[in-house]
């Protein structure tokens, strides 16, 4: 065997390793989740009960699925005006200027802040501020968690749409200007329709990020195991319940937490694949 063939084989087997890694992850999660699904069946997904009392253990993932969706959608809605304005600032109004470069750098740095630091800031600064303006209880809850999540996903939502917006051909915009359109009219009738699918993909990927964020959410959501009844009530997400309850878990409880991890893995996988598919269709 000559050396070129060896090199090619090494490269090929390493990429097989990546595939095996993904398959192994799925295999292990499914394996770990089997006891929970055996015990509760599909009701595991649709049951709202989480009772760790020994002898009458009952686990259902619904409170956490609902909590995850509520915080992530909340975060998406809260981040939308901010991140979309920022994309317009960077990709349209001030494209290529020094101000835009600095703003872009700062937005990127938002992505570099560790989740736990966001959590601390949310706990010690945001939460007291919310109590101050008349937020009920101790300031914990889905809304608080969604608010900090919104800040955390801004860089992900911004970077892709900003890139796409700045790629809209100048000819198209100039044509609209020459017809007497104002800048706003160019944005609403040329830029946004042209960049639409890229913008959507960016928000889908940001949503995927929000689904799995753990530490900051754990510190702010209030950690209650019932199905959340209001946007301002407390709850738990799939990620936060794993972080919270893993320490004292074994047996059926551990298996239930792994099952929640499996569901989270599948949901984020689907969301990410959807986002990537849209991007691919655009090219």
């Amino acid at each position: 065997m000559n050396s070129d063939k060896i090199t090619k084989t090494v490269l090929f087997s390493v990429s097989i390793l990546i595939l095996m890694l993904a398959a192994g992850m799925l295999y292990s999660l499914v394996g770990g989740a089997i006891p929970a699904f055996k015990e509760f069946g599909l009701k595991f997904i649709f049951s709202g009960e989480w009772n760790p009392t020994e002898g009458e253990e009952k686990y259902g993932a619904l409170p956490f699925i609902v909590g995850t969706l509520m915080t992530s959608f909340g975060a998406l809605i809260l981040c939308l005006p901010l991140s979309f304005s920022t994309s317009l600032f960077l990709g349209e109004y001030f494209r290529g200027t020094r101000v835009a470069r600095i703003l872009g750098l700062l937005v990127d740095l938002l992505a570099g802040i560790p989740s736990i630091v966001y959590g601390l800031w949310g706990f010690y600064v945001l939460r007291p501020a919310l109590i101050e303006i008349g937020f009920g209880g101790r300031g914990f809850g889905i809304f608080t968690a969604a608010l900090i999540l919104a800040v955390m996903i801004i860089p992900y939502a911004t970077s892709l749409s900003n890139e796409i917006i700045s790629m809209v051909p100048n000819d198209l915009k100039e044509a609209a200007y020459s017809l007497g359109a104002t800048r706003l009219e160019v944005i609403t009738s040329v830029t946004i329709p042209n960049a639409r699918s890229g913008i959507v993909a960016g928000y889908i990927l940001a949503f995927g990020r929000a689904l799995g964020e753990t530490m900051a959410v754990t510190m702010l959501i209030g950690n209650t195991n019932q199905i959340p009844t209001s946007f301002f009530g407390t709850g738990n997400t799939m990620a936060s319940v794993i972080a919270n309850q893993f320490g004292e878990a074994d047996g059926l409880k551990l298996s239930s937490l792994i099952a929640i991890g499996l569901l989270l893995f599948l949901i984020t996988g689907i969301i990410n694949a959807a986002g990537k598919l849209i991007i691919k269709k655009m090219n």
């Binding site: 990429s15 595939l19 993904a22 292990s28 990927l205 990620a239």
Partner: peptide, 26 residues
């Protein structure tokens, strides 16, 4: 094969870190 690996790797990038913790635990 390359496309498959690239897509799988992209999807791995979106896996929440807590799930990676579970995997490494297992």
């Amino acid at each position: 094969m390359a496309n498959l690996t690239r897509n799988i790797s992209d999807i791995l990038q979106g896996v929440p870190s807590i799930v990676l913790g579970l995997i490494s635990y297992l």
